[in-house]
Structures are given as C-alpha cells and as structure tokens.
C-alpha cells in the first residue's frame, strides 16, 4: 500500500512538472480583461513616436493602466499575441506579468474609459495594425458582446490612479511602470 501511494505521488509530481513546462495556451479572442485595477492620465512635453501601430503617431497624452488578465496573455512568447485595444487605439503592454496576470499597459490617447471598450483582439504584430484592422476588430468585439468596462470598475481604477501625470518624455513613464508592476504583481511573481 505504501509503495503504491509513493508511486501515485511520483506520477502526480511528474504530471505537474509536465504541466509546468508547457507553454500556457492563449484564450480565444476577442476577450475583455478580467479587471481594470488602475488608470492614470498622463501628458508628455516631448512627443513620443508610438511604434505599436502601423500609423506610428506622435503621442503627447494617454493613459497608464494596470489590467488583470489571464496569465497566459502575459507569458513571453514570439508568436503573434492578442493585440490590446482601447476604443480605437492600439494599446501596448509589456511582456511582464506572468504568472500574476497583472499587466501594465499604455493607451496612446486620452480616450473616455467609461465609453471605450478595452479588449484583446486577434493575435498579430501591432506594427501591422492599421485603421482598417482596428475597425474590423471593433466589429468583432461588438459581436462578442464586449462593451465598455463597468462604470464602477473604471471609477475605482481612476481613484487608484489619481490625477494627471505631467512628464517631460516617455522615459519618465518607466519608473511609474516599474512601481506599478511591483505594487500590483510583485508579490504574485
């Protein structure tokens, strides 16, 4: 009996090791984040070139967000990743947040978070996303019933974020992003 128990334990351990080694599977798109935990508006004195869309706009204002997502979304991988959209904007998120599922994101425009849906769309390279792609992805999200985030969720995130951040350049966003990552994901990673 004892040997069988030990054998069973060994098998369970081996299975769990196999699971741990497997690359986590991405959820089907489109899907909304689980939660919006933080939202803070920012303004830059020096415009930054935004390479995360085909348009490559010069950005002077936007949002810093902290989202809770399926951890698989934040797992570093080379293949195409779900593109994060906020309204009609392509947002960017860093490949940090696994396994906590807490990601720091940047929206390159001061959209109305109460009105604009936030969701993950078809996996592709962000630099290939142009206006036609955004329009198509908006339609898919609408079809999937993805709408604006709940008002209470947005209000709580805005409250957590606080007032507008006025910065010289995009480089000044880095310390805040690190701080947020540590605050929201640090203990989980």
């Amino acid at each position: 009996m004892r040997s069988r128990t030990l054998c069973g334990f060994a098998i369970a351990l081996a299975l769990s090791l196999e699971v741990a080694a497997a690359t986590p599977v991405l959820p089907e798109t489109p899907f909304a984040p689980i939660d919006l935990l933080y939202a803070r508006p920012f303004t830059l004195t020096e415009p930054m070139e935004y390479r995360w869309s085909a348009d490559r706009p010069m950005v002077t204002s936007g949002w810093i967000l902290v989202l809770e997502v399926d951890p698989a979304v934040a797992y570093p991988r080379q293949t195409a990743l779900p593109v994060l959209y906020a309204g009609d904007q392509v947002a960017r998120y860093a490949m940090k947040g696994y396994p906590s599922g807490r990601i720091v994101a940047l929206v390159p425009s001061r959209i109305d978070l109460h009105e604009a849906p936030v969701w993950f769309g078809t996996p592709m390279l962000p630099e290939q996303v142009d206006r036609s792609v955004i329009t198509a992805e908006q339609a898919l999200a609408a079809q999937a019933g993805i709408g604006p985030l709940p008002a209470a969720m947005v209000d709580a995130a805005l409250s957590a974020g606080g007032g507008e951040l006025v910065l010289q350049s995009s480089l000044d966003l880095e310390p805040l992003a690190r701080e947020l990552h540590l605050q929201y994901a640090g203990s989980l990673e």
Partner: peptide, 11 residues
C-alpha cells in the same frame, strides 16, 4: 541601475 532590461515603455 536602472536595469534597462526591465523596460515597460522604453522602446
């Protein structure tokens, strides 16, 4: 320091 490998938004 800072470790630029921990980029979030730095290009």
């Amino acid at each position: 320091d800072p470790d630029h490998c921990d980029n979030f938004f730095d290009p």
